[in-house]
Amino acid sequence: MSGHPGSKPARTVVTVAIDAGGTSMKGGVLENGILLPEPYLEQPSRSEADAESIVAHFASLIIRLAGAYMKGSGTPEHDVTFRIGTAFPGPFDYERGISRIRGLGKYEQLYGLPVGELLKKELRRRAGLPGSDPWMRMLAAADIAFGNDAVLFGMGAAKRFPAERLLCLTLGTGLGSVFMDRGRAVSGLDGVPESGMLYAETFEGEPVDGQFGRRGVLALADALHARRQGDDVIDLAAAAARGESAALRVWHDYGERLGRMLRPYAAAFRPDRLILGGQIAKSLPIFGASLTHALLPVRLPVLYEDDLLRQVFYGADMLFD
Rank of each mutant, 00 (worst) to 15 (best):
S2I: 11
S7I: 03
T12Q: 12
V13M: 01
V13R: 15
T15P: 07
A17W: 01
D19A: 02
M25Q: 06
G27E: 07
L30P: 05
L30T: 02
I34G: 00
P39K: 02
P44E: 10
S47T: 08
D50T: 05
A51M: 04
A51D: 14
I54V: 15
I54Q: 13
V55G: 00
L61D: 11
I63W: 10
I63S: 10
I63L: 14
R64A: 15
A66E: 11
G67W: 10
A68Y: 03
K71R: 13
G72Q: 13
G72S: 15
S73N: 04
P89E: 11
P91G: 09
G105R: 06
G105Y: 08
K106C: 08
E108M: 08
G112V: 07
P114I: 01
P114A: 12
L123D: 07
R124T: 08
R124L: 13
R126D: 05
M138A: 13
M138Y: 09
A142L: 01
F146I: 01
N148M: 02
A150N: 06
A150L: 05
V151C: 01
A157F: 00
A163V: 06
R165Y: 07
L169E: 04
T173Q: 07
G176K: 05
G176V: 06
V178C: 15
V178N: 04
V186P: 05
S187W: 03
G188T: 09
D190L: 14
D190A: 15
E194F: 09
G196P: 10
M197F: 14
E201N: 06
T202V: 09
T202H: 13
F203V: 05
E206V: 09
E206P: 00
D209A: 15
G213K: 02
R215E: 13
G216F: 02
D222M: 07
A223V: 01
A223H: 10
R227Y: 06
R227F: 07
R227G: 09
A241L: 11
A241T: 09
E244N: 10
A247E: 07
H252N: 14
H252F: 12
E256C: 03
G259E: 10
M261Y: 08
L262S: 04
A267S: 12
A267K: 09
D272V: 00
D272Y: 02
L274A: 01
S283V: 11
I286K: 03
A289K: 14
S290R: 09
S290E: 11
L291S: 05
V298H: 03
P301N: 08
L303Y: 15
Y304V: 01
D307G: 00
Y314W: 06
D317F: 05
D317A: 13
F320P: 05
D321F: 01
